[in-house]
Design a protein around this nucleic acid. Structure first.
Lengths: 134, 134
DNA sequence: ACAGAACTTTAGACTTAGTCTAAAGTTTGA
DNA sequence: TCAAACTTTAGACTAAGTCTAAAGTTCTGT
């Protein structure tokens, strides 16, 4: 791991109020610098190959801590039973390539919408998945 | 099961090109007349209580056959790891009540939207989940 | 109506993704 | 520096769903 990436991960963890541990720093480096919408199992399988000591529970604990700290969001895709993690935590939508299953971010500016909910219902968040081909 | 419901289920199965069996007729009656966005496990637990002979595999087989035949759609909700079945197969969107987890259909007329995809990308379908409170 | 083919159902083993446990190790802060 | 708080670990466990192959049911052609 590059020194600057290591330092960036450490800083991010600290800023988020999380303890800095070797395992978390390694995982953050992968999640934020080397992966794209990874599933938990992808993170775990990377960790098994690339980190000497790392248990499955630590992977899941770390992912959950990062979500709780607001550094990651979880997505559940209509086409798969796996939980997906997204380090883009600002509002945006997702495109799923039907051929490859690959997930791409869509700029929220590219979807304009207006919603009329029944009286008294209040929207707090919104998920949009576009399926299609490239 | 009411005679007219039984006949309706039989007709629906036939029309869809599926063999009519006692198990499928029972399950269809529940799915189409007595449930609302059920999960597979809800269907299975209903079946255990209400049908003498019914294996878990039959519940899943039947649900999958109904999906293949276009009579049901599957949904994967962002907030749950369970597959949900929807007998409303026409275009519509979903509202999830944050308090209860309950899923409500939204009339597609109540969400107007326009999407600008990158050159060459083609949308084939779209899922929208609104989370909020009532 | 009958035989054989095709399809469906069954119990229970299996798989996959993820959680839990409790003991050992690490980090923090007075 | 020491204790409290937090984190990691291996592996058992759980939940949701799939698979298997044998037995049962329905369909098709005559």
């Amino acid at each position: 791991m590059k020194t600057k990436d290591k330092q960036a991960s450490e800083k991010m963890l600290k800023t988020a109020g999380l303890q800095v541990t070797a395992q978390r720093v390694h995982l953050c480096d992968f999640i934020f610098n080397q992966s794209d919408h990874p599933t938990a199992e992808e993170v775990w399988s990377w960790a098994q190959k690339n980190i000497d000591q790392m248990s499955r529970a630590t992977v899941y604990n770390t992912l959950n801590s990062l979500v709780d700290a607001g550094l990651l969001k979880t997505l559940r895709m209509p086409h798969s039973d796996k939980l997906v993690f997204d380090f883009n935590v600002s509002e945006h939508f997702h495109f799923i390539d039907e051929k490859t299953g690959r997930i791409e971010d869509l700029d929220p500016k590219d979807l304009s919408w207006s919603l009329k909910l029944p009286k008294g219902w209040k929207k707090s968040s919104m998920e949009v998945f576009i399926k299609g081909r490239k």
